[in-house]
Write a protein that binds this DNA or RNA. Structure first.
Lengths: 142, 142
DNA sequence: TTACATCCTCTAGCTACTGTAGATTCAAGC
DNA sequence: GCTTGAATCTACAGTAGCTAGAGGATGTAA
């Protein structure tokens, strides 16, 4: 029987976050003491660990909802779980590619700036003039 | 004299986003027609381009506010602009490192999953058991 | 003049939390 | 049994950076 505070500590989660997960139906409503405080069992500890670990891997709460659902049905095919993970992997790879391009341009900006007045600042100049830019006119997304 | 719609098209911004930038004071209040519609000049086009380009490089709106301020004062030292860019570069590099770790673990999950019942699904198993995980108990951030 | 695209303001919604206020409960020490 | 202080409770507001929609006004071309 864990209080919400010790559950939080064990999983590296904030207390409010646990309550939030309950509110959106990701965590079940736990038992309560007579005074109305939440008390958790090991099953809930496992579930929360699953959620947190998935979040650390960047899965969205919606994806996690699906994964938990799959996890609750051991007889189902695991293709779906696999697909979700692959989708996530693709996303991570896309973001990495994007960040790589950003890094290149930022490095260029910083290295070329020799210090002095902002009038001659290479950083500001690059930001002003989009034409010398490698980055495209598309979504920003992290 | 540009309408908000053509300014939006020229800069790859949504109309609402431009109005949002105005609302938070990132864009100035433009002139209006008698009927109350916004009309923009080239200065505003330049400013919005600067903002969008900076956003594409991942700068926060707060950072952009500082950069714009520096850009408006050509006699100031450009150290500050340089510092902002360096900070941004560091952030990008941190995120990349983080994503690299994620990619490794996701790849492992996906490659080890041989298909079958979710009961034996490697993906779900890894998510359940945090102990075999490389990722740390820290912030998720992107 | 009439049609229709574009514009206006205002409000609410998105993700995934985080923080605060003010009241209540729990557990330990005396 | 009583007190104290930490932890908990609910409810609501706020974060970043937009995005979407309602319901109405304006601008422009035929």
């Amino acid at each position: 029987m864990l209080t919400i505070g010790s559950l939080a500590k064990k999983t590296g989660t904030k207390v409010q976050t646990i309550r939030y997960y309950e509110q959106i139906g990701l965590m079940p409503e736990p038992g309560r003491t007579e005074g109305g405080q939440r008390r958790y069992e090991n099953a809930e500890l496992d579930r929360l660990s699953f959620i947190r670990h998935s979040r650390q891997l960047g899965f969205s709460l919606d994806a996690i909802r699906e994964l938990l659902d799959l996890s609750d049905h051991p007889e189902k095919s695991c293709d779906e779980a696999d697909a979700i993970a692959r989708r996530q992997l693709r996303q991570v790879e896309q973001r990495m590619a994007r960040l790589k391009a950003l890094r290149t341009e930022l490095k260029r900006m910083v290295h070329e700036c020799s210090g002095g007045r902002t009038a001659d600042c290479r950083v500001l100049e690059v930001l002003r003039d989009h034409s010398e830019c490698l980055t495209e006119h598309d979504d920003i997304g992290a």
